[in-house]
Design a protein around this nucleic acid. Structure first.
Lengths: 73, 73
DNA sequence: TTTGAATTTAAGCAAAACTTAAATCGGACT
DNA sequence: AGTCCGATTTAAGTTTTGCTTAAATTCAAA
């Protein structure tokens, strides 16, 4: 799955826990945990929006795309 | 809705139609049209992944976050 | 070893991404 | 004006899965 969630780095950078961000943006700790650990298969923009607003960042700071290796083994 | 879809710019930049991208990444023209015109409320990473792969770009090139104006009228 | 905060698992509901098929839009060209 | 044709949009329905609540687990500190 080449889309990776890089939210962890943002949280670490500002010493914020997942629980705290979850509370601030009004989302369940559960969902934020799943998102953070890359266990979700998508996001709603309303959620992404709140994260960006609270952390003062862009979608590109929370999501990344890693190229699949051509003919890797 | 502070999360905006900026895919249109990417397509325009390479003179590609929505239909063409849809076919290349194996998604329906309909869904790509909805996505492109900002009528969706979220994305699946599998879709975002295919777009990034085909266009050779990052999530941040397709999605943006615009700050809501404080006390706008 | 007990406590408490943070994270994860489990189970279920509701929202919406995605599909196919049909309609509409625009431009080019008679 | 009328026809053709590719691109985009609307409509309706399916199915995936985001997100929730509640309970379990982890783990560092006391």
């Amino acid at each position: 799955m080449p889309i990776t969630v890089t939210l962890d780095a943002m949280l670490a950078a500002r010493g914020m826990t997942g629980k705290e961000l979850a509370e601030r943006i009004g989302i369940s700790e559960t969902q934020l945990s799943l998102f953070r650990s890359g266990k979700v298969k998508g996001v709603r923009f309303s959620t992404l929006d709140r994260m960006c607003a609270e952390l003062g960042c862009k979608p590109g700071d929370l999501l990344d795309h890693v190229r699949k290796i051509e003919g890797g083994y």
